[in-house]
Amino acid sequence: MNNPKGEELKFHIGSTFVVELSGEDVKYFSERRITRAEPVTLVFFSEKADGDNEKIGFVEFDLRVINRNAYITFYVAPQYRGKGIGKLMLRKALEFAFKELNLHRITAEVYEYNERSLRLLESSGFKKEGILKEAKYHDGRYWDIIVMGLMEEDWKNNEEFRR
Rank of each mutant, 00 (worst) to 15 (best):
A108D: 01
M148F: 02
I106M: 03
E122R: 14
A135Q: 07
L103D: 01
D139E: 14
A135H: 10
L121Y: 05
K127N: 12
D139I: 11
L132A: 06
K87H: 13
Y111K: 10
I131Q: 07
L150G: 00
I145W: 07
N102T: 12
M89A: 05
K92E: 15
F96D: 00
G149Y: 04
H104P: 09
D144V: 08
W143H: 15
V110F: 02
M89L: 03
M89S: 04
R141P: 13
E153G: 12
D139R: 08
Y137D: 06
L118Y: 03
G84W: 09
G140T: 12
W143C: 10
S117W: 08
R105K: 12
M148L: 11
I131W: 08
I106Y: 01
L118K: 06
E95L: 14
K127H: 12
R105E: 02
E112R: 06
L132K: 05
I146P: 02
M151K: 12
E115D: 12
E100F: 02
G125R: 11
L118P: 09
G125D: 06
K136T: 01
E153T: 09
M148E: 00
K128E: 14
Y113G: 14
E112A: 05
L150N: 00
D154R: 14
A135W: 05
R141D: 11
R141H: 08
E153V: 08
G140M: 11
G125W: 03
T107Q: 07
E109M: 05
N102R: 09
E100D: 11
L132V: 00
E129P: 15
L132I: 01
Y113E: 15
R105Q: 02
I106A: 01
A135N: 06
E115W: 05
V147R: 14
A108M: 02
F98D: 06
K99F: 07
K92R: 15
K92T: 15
R119F: 03
G86F: 07
G84C: 08
M151T: 11
E100A: 06
G125M: 08
L103T: 01
M89Y: 03
G125Y: 05
S124L: 06
K99N: 13
I85D: 13
I145Q: 09
K99M: 12
A108P: 06
S123K: 15
